[in-house]
Design a protein around this nucleic acid. Structure first.
Length: 276
DNA sequence: GCCCAGGAGATGT
DNA sequence: ACATCTCATGGG
């Protein structure tokens, strides 16, 4: 199935940018199980193609192909760090993931590194999630909320998630019992953020990641160690806490702050923008 | 052994 | 509201 010919860098956006942790390279493309359905993405000379159980519109939405990233660059062109970061990664796109899958991934992300987040998501998927056989390989997806809610703590701890086990189980239970996770896309940012941080294992930063990567809230601005350093170094922002830093950044950067954040984060983490 | 990783929760002030 | 400590686990 032909998706389009936008300048989307699949490896950068799906694998290297640490916004999702479920894709893996298969042949010349990338495979994942999203919401219980297999997706396989690859690029040919004429553009992006897909195989699997997803339709074209849903994948274009997931890959954010209909957004004008040139306009994003234009919007922040007066900020040197922003201009440089966006120019460095012309194929980086902010994915629109399923909010539940983003929620699980970013609960795992707390005080953890990218490779381990990936390994833990894979272990949970292999143990509890749906399986597909594709080109001779087994591809697994994250379990649905009601499935994860059935786990006991020891079962998850055995997979290596450590103290995050009870967070995952209790959050899964609340989502399975009606927490309005799929409505948050239509809520005001502040209300959606306040609701998310009520879930165990979800603080300010994880809530912002879920809102940005899972709910389409482009103003959500996750502040991790890297973004904090970059904001201090390049925007001369001073703050006594991450929370204050997040407030200031959102106030300055506006409705698409989160999209820019992904470029800044990647540049800082990769060392492509020097920090003082 | 130490420090770090896309932090959050509990406790004390 | 703010500072500090602890929480598993693996890799450098």
């Amino acid at each position: 199935m032909y998706l389009g010919n936008e300048s989307m860098d699949l490896k950068l956006s799906l694998l290297d940018s640490a916004q999702c942790f479920c894709w893996r390279p298969v042949d010349a493309g990338y495979a994942a199980v999203l919401q219980g359905r297999l997706a396989y993405l690859y690029r040919q000379s004429d553009g992006l193609h897909a195989q699997g159980d997803w339709d074209r519109d849903a994948l274009r939405r997931y890959l954010d192909l209909d957004r004008d990233y040139a306009r994003l660059a234009d919007r922040y062109c007066e900020l040197e760090a922003a201009r440089r970061a966006i120019a460095l990664y012309p194929g980086l796109r902010v994915l629109r993931q399923d909010p539940w899958e983003a929620l699980v991934a970013f609960i795992l992300s707390a005080n953890n590194n990218v490779q381990r987040i990936r390994n833990l998501a894979a272990a949970i998927s292999r143990e509890l999630g749906p399986r597909f056989d594709f080109r001779g390989e087994a591809i697994y997806g994250l379990p649905a909320p009601d499935r994860m809610a059935q786990c006991d703590e020891a079962q998850l701890r055995a997979l290596g998630v450590g103290y995050r086990a009870p967070y995952l189980i209790e959050t899964a239970r609340r989502v399975a019992e009606g927490f309005p996770l799929w409505e948050l896309q239509n809520w005001p940012y502040a209300d959606a953020h306040a609701a998310l941080v009520q879930l165990p294992g979800v603080g300010d930063k994880v809530a912002d990641c879920v809102l940005l990567f899972g709910c389409g809230h482009t103003s959500a601005f996750p502040v991790d160690v890297w973004v904090e350093r970059l904001l201090k170094s390049w925007l001369k922002l001073e703050a006594k806490s991450r929370k204050e830093m997040q407030r200031k950044a959102r106030a300055i950067l506006g409705e698409e702050a989160g999209l820019l954040q992904q470029f800044l984060f990647h540049a800082a983490r990769m060392g492509d923008i020097e920090l003082e």
